[in-house]
């Protein structure tokens, strides 16, 4: 241990839970844990005491990269002007059904 005076609370992990199979994993919150095994156990005890999850992912928080709000407008801009990506863009002869 580098510094025993430091009151360790263990490193931070982000927790993603899947309510039931077929559904996506959703961010639930975070836990502190020294390793991945305990991160999973802590995540279970904190975020699934009543069967809220059937599977859990834990990821060290420092490993997550995210977009930043300041860059968001330009970052997501390329999708703004491509209306031809939507089915409403296309004209179909009257009476024809294409889902």
């Amino acid at each position: 241990m580098e510094n025993t005076k430091e009151n360790t609370q263990w490193k931070l992990w982000e927790v993603f839970t899947q309510r039931k199979s077929g559904e996506p994993h959703e961010h639930a919150g975070s836990v502190h844990a020294p390793d991945k095994e305990m991160a999973l156990q802590n995540a279970r005890d904190v975020y699934s005491r009543r069967g809220e999850a059937t599977t859990i992912w834990v990821v060290p928080s420092e490993q997550i990269t995210s977009t930043s709000p300041e860059d968001s407008p330009s970052f997501f801009d390329p999708s703004e002007d491509k209306i031809y990506r939507h089915p409403q863009f296309y004209k179909i002869p009257k009476g024809v059904t294409i889902d």
Binding site: T4, N7, T8, Q9, W10, P34, D35, M38
Partner: peptide, 12 residues
């Protein structure tokens, strides 16, 4: 609880 946290960290 400090020794428990430190032991778990050392183990990890």
């Amino acid at each position: 609880g400090r020794w428990v946290r430190e032991a778990a960290e050392a183990y990890a």
